[in-house]
Design a binder for these strands. Sequence first.
DNA 1: GCTTTACCTCAACCTTGCTTGAGGTATTAA
DNA 2: TTAATACCTCAAGCAAGGTTGAGGTAAAGC
Lengths: 152, 152
Amino acid sequence: MKESGWTVGKVAQRCGVNISTLHFYEKKGLIRSWRNAGNQRRYKADVLRRVSVIKAAQKMGISLESIKQAFATLPDQRTPTANDWKKLSKGWQGELNARIAYLERLRDSLTGCIGCGCLSMKNCPIYNEDDKLAAEGSGPVILDRAKKSMLA
Amino acid sequence: MKESGWTVGKVAQRCGVNISTLHFYEKKGLIRSWRNAGNQRRYKADVLRRVSVIKAAQKMGISLESIKQAFATLPDQRTPTANDWKKLSKGWQGELNARIAYLERLRDSLTGCIGCGCLSMKNCPIYNEDDKLAAEGSGPVILDRAKKSMLA
DNA sequence: GCTTTACCTCAACCTTGCTTGAGGTATTAA
DNA sequence: TTAATACCTCAAGCAAGGTTGAGGTAAAGC
């Protein structure tokens, strides 16, 4: 008989990830499922968006741990609305802007600095870019870990 | 008696990396040293620039393997000149520009896409960004691997 | 000359983000 | 009903980029 919920295989196919990846995300607490009578996983439709958001966030360079923390701000009892997701992505936009700005500064000083040899100095703009960005403190607090890892 | 060349400790201190990192880079073929009478490593001064360039490139998201390949284009017999380094960094600027453009596209479609739920679709601009950037093919051939890894 | 600090090698371990395989059960299609 | 898929768990493995520790030698300072 036809049961409710998405099977792991369907979700994997739809999201373009491996089944093992979904198991992995579940173990990490990024997605949830319930079990049917035969102990097989079943998912609510919103798992599709979750997985997609995970993939998008990863492309920004955000770690699974940070994604998990951001997900923790989503409503627990009800399925997240478009608005809930929007809020989440707004936070990441700040992150993304900081990262873009960082890479732009890197680009703009790259040739000069690599060429001039100042890279090994304590006062080189590229060499010390870390601290500047870290000191900026833009973006939501919840993303602090992501920011750190981005700069590591 | 005072020998010529930098010791591993001095290089580490000057570059702000661990000694173990220098050993590691040497094992990977990114830097070179000779040994003194007591089997200790000694470095030419240009190792400072090499390490600095490695660190700068890593901040751009370039893998050690790609950095190694880029280093392979440097002159083998003589110490690289400022101009040699400049050429190298020019190649990476293309890389960096592509990455910046990628993140900008990501940023610009982020809120809309995460909010609307199209992320799981085959035609979502975020979800398929990979292919677009991969298809652009900008930047030197030698950096192909870096580009792949950046998108992975 | 002695002590402290620096250095050596090699192997094992760490984190992130998964993948692979073995051995076994459920579900589905013909 | 039976074969083919799909799914389950758990452990191990992989790749990148290092770090840590043990056991031992070299160099430097007083």
